[in-house]
Design a protein around this nucleic acid. Structure first.
Lengths: 211, 211
DNA sequence: TGACAAGATTAACAGTGTTAAGTAAAATTG
DNA sequence: CAATTTTACTTAACACTGTTAATCTTGTCA
């Protein structure tokens, strides 16, 4: 490998700077989109409004996202990313014996703290879950995998009964998702008054896993 | 009250016939809409396509439904109606001691048999649940009420532990909805292979309610 | 017959996603 | 430094969408 000439270096630097600018605008689009999405809702979310919000012409967005669908997908995917981080954090920060409980807590808390995103991710466009991640999102945490891991390890430690970890994790998932989506749906269930139900549910699961 | 003249009778009959015709066209619109909805999906569902399908101009639909939103709502509501009927049937046709189990079964079966409607009702447009029923849909079964009733009666009979029936019903609901929506979302879970999970889940709930 | 009402249509508007052609400025090259 | 190419963006246009107002048609009634 030979050293580059000064001109070549400059060229690369400038290219990098421009690339940086592109990334920043992409970021800006995503921010405006997320904001409009959370205020207007899924139904009234429009590309043209996003464009207007950032002061660009509508077609500019197509230079950064293939189409509306992809912009929405990336928004959902940022949700999946944050969601995965939250579950992983719960896994990491809890004593092994309490991991499952903490993950359940983190799951529900995420839904309550990010209702708009949660709805998009798991209710309105749950089909996105089947889609492969967009390129450049390689450092992606498999949320369900976190649960499965916690379950499998608890089994290995003998804290819960030996079963198919995947199936056990699914039963957990069914419960936390069921509760979360019910709270986001039913006005009688509020973030405050679900606490007893959440505790009951988690205790039931814990008991069930032990037996 | 005096007898009507022949002319008055005719008038009424003709008015009734026309009213009948209106109802039939409304029915026709709903059928075409349901069909297009289930083939094209929520995103690509359009009034103009519905109009074309039944051979009317787009604006005709506005003579029968206030707007697209109401047509969609009525479609969802027909789903709620069928859903309520299914749960009620499960309630009626099962021996008292097995009612809860049967209702759970009916819940999940409905979701698997009517995935498109279920998605609309409880995932894509779960906000419809908070909306009051459209007039003329007065004979409406409160699905959650069926569960609550079954639970309350099982408590009275001493089959399950005394608790807040509403909260117990909610825990049941959380589970069946969680499972149903997961199956409709996750391609790894299919109507065939969830049977073990369903049984495990229901047994867990039954155990939990007894303790 | 002529007035009237009901049911449907046409035309139009505003807004949407999306594509192709055009433009101005910046970067690159000889 | 001038010429050329690339880049980032815009304008114009198309094919849709939901929705409204005005119009037409047709059978009903006095």
């Amino acid at each position: 490998m030979q050293v580059q000439t000064r001109a070549e270096k400059l060229k690369l630097a400038s290219a990098a700077r421009r690339e940086q600018g592109k990334l920043e605008l992409k970021r800006q689009i995503l921010e405006a989109a997320a904001h409009l999405f959370s205020t207007n809702g899924y139904e009234d979310f429009s590309l043209r409004q996003v464009a207007e919000a950032i002061g660009y012409s509508p077609t500019t967005i197509y230079l950064y996202f293939k189409d509306k669908e992809e912009l929405l997908f990336v928004m959902a995917f940022e949700g999946f990313r944050g969601f995965g981080v939250a579950l992983q954090h719960a896994y990491d920060s809890a004593p092994p014996a309490e991991r499952i409980w903490h993950i359940g807590r983190a799951y529900v808390d995420f839904a309550l703290a990010n209702p708009v995103q949660y709805r998009l991710m798991f209710m309105q466009r749950s089909d996105y879950l089947a889609r492969p991640a967009p390129e450049c999102y390689t450092d992606f945490i498999d949320s369900f995998g976190v649960v499965t891991k916690a379950v499998a390890e608890a089994m290995k430690r003998g804290e819960i009964k030996l079963r198919d970890p995947q199936e056990t994790a699914t039963l957990l998932w069914v419960n936390v998702h069921g509760l979360a989506s019910l709270v986001l749906t039913n006005s009688h269930l509020t973030p405050e008054n679900i606490e007893p139900l959440f505790h009951w549910m988690m205790q039931m699961l814990q008991r069930e896993m032990s037996v």
